[in-house]
């Protein structure tokens, strides 16, 4: 057999794979004793073998997840870039869709209903609510269909399955960016104008916590959707229900006589995050510390629980 000399670049790849691979525990002793003895006597040492297709412990899982960061990013970008590629206007839709959305709510609530609900700038209030709520609702709905939708990918490559949830979150954030810019521009340009104040600088901080929360929810609902695929049918109701329970369109003043409902809504992380956005962007005030802690606790809690649950059931996602 001819031996071709190993090229440098391919050697690099094998070395990297071996590094990630060699962090796994030795697998030879997992074989049954007669088979192991037989193999050893025939072919010699087996200590280089590692177990294939099992769920790695958390630390290795994180390492492997981190090693896939470029893939997660490229995958998310690829999906985000091609979203409107079948439309005539193509990338223009990234701006057109949110513009149409904003115009719709402006016409319905501003012109037809003439609603103000005792607020100075009800239009801005509702646009911020709807645009930012969409991120969470898409994280939940996308999470439920996640495993089913990525089946082809999961069947072809061995990577930590949580990558698909991370990729989903990154993709949704990328696709939301034009909408966020339209939203910020809209509340400045449309009367009564909101003037950007110093508190606007807190917006990215809230977005970061919000994204953490969304990632946790995607992981959690990703697992739920894999366990119970029927959940996909119920998602539109869940999403609509959450919309009313999070004060997206209606202020919670209407529940002022129901202290229990008020308490439940005020503990709801989506309500809290929307309230933070609105306080910062519209009221130009710094939100109270209690709301920050509440959101941070929810975000980290959702991420921890979502990740653990998803990781524990890692082998389920490729089962037939």
């Amino acid at each position: 057999m001819t031996r071709s000399s190993p090229r440098r670049e391919s050697q690099g790849l094998r070395t990297q794979w071996r590094r990630a691979w060699s962090t796994r525990k030795s697998g030879a002793q997992l074989l049954s004793t007669p088979l192991r003895r037989d193999l050893e006597s025939r072919y010699g040492d087996l200590s280089h073998l590692r177990r294939v297709g099992s769920r790695p412990p958390l630390r290795e899982y994180f390492t492997e997840l981190w090693d896939r960061r470029h893939f997660i990013w490229a995958g998310a970008r690829g999906a985000a870039v091609t979203r409107y590629s079948n439309e005539r206007l193509g990338a223009l839709w990234y701006v057109l869709r949110p513009l149409l959305d904003a115009a719709f709510y402006g016409i319905v609530f501003g012109l037809i209903l003439q609603a103000s609900r005792g607020m100075e700038n009800f239009l801005a209030w509702i646009v911020v609510g709807i645009f930012m709520y969409r991120l969470t609702s898409r994280a939940i709905t996308g999470g439920v269909g996640l495993i089913r939708g990525s089946k082809a990918m999961l069947r072809a490559f061995a990577f930590p399955r949580a990558s698909v949830a991370v990729s989903l979150t990154v993709r949704e954030l990328m696709m939301a960016m034009p909408a966020i810019i339209v939203m910020l521009g809209g509340i400045v340009l449309v009367p009564p104008h909101e003037i950007p104040s110093v508190t606007w600088s807190l917006f990215p901080v809230i977005l970061l916590l919000h994204t953490t929360l969304n990632l946790g929810l995607s992981l959690l609902f990703g697992w739920l959707g894999a366990v119970l695929p029927d959940l996909a049918q119920a998602m539109s109701f869940v999403s609509r229900f959450l919309m009313y329970a999070s004060a997206v369109i209606f202020p919670i003043d209407r529940f002022i006589d129901h202290p229990t409902i008020m308490a439940v809504i005020e503990a709801n992380p989506i309500y809290v995050v929307l309230d933070l956005y609105r306080t910062v962007l519209i009221d130009g005030a710094v939100p109270p510390l209690a709301e920050w802690t509440m959101l941070a606790a929810w975000a980290l809690g959702a991420l921890t629980i979502g990740f653990t649950v998803f990781w524990l059931d890692e082998e389920r996602y490729t089962r037939e």
Binding site: L31, L46, L49, R51, G53
Partner: peptide
């Protein structure tokens, strides 16, 4: 059980 010297690529 399946054990291998590297991650197999399908």
């Amino acid at each position: 059980t399946v054990v291998a010297s590297a991650q197999p690529q399908l």
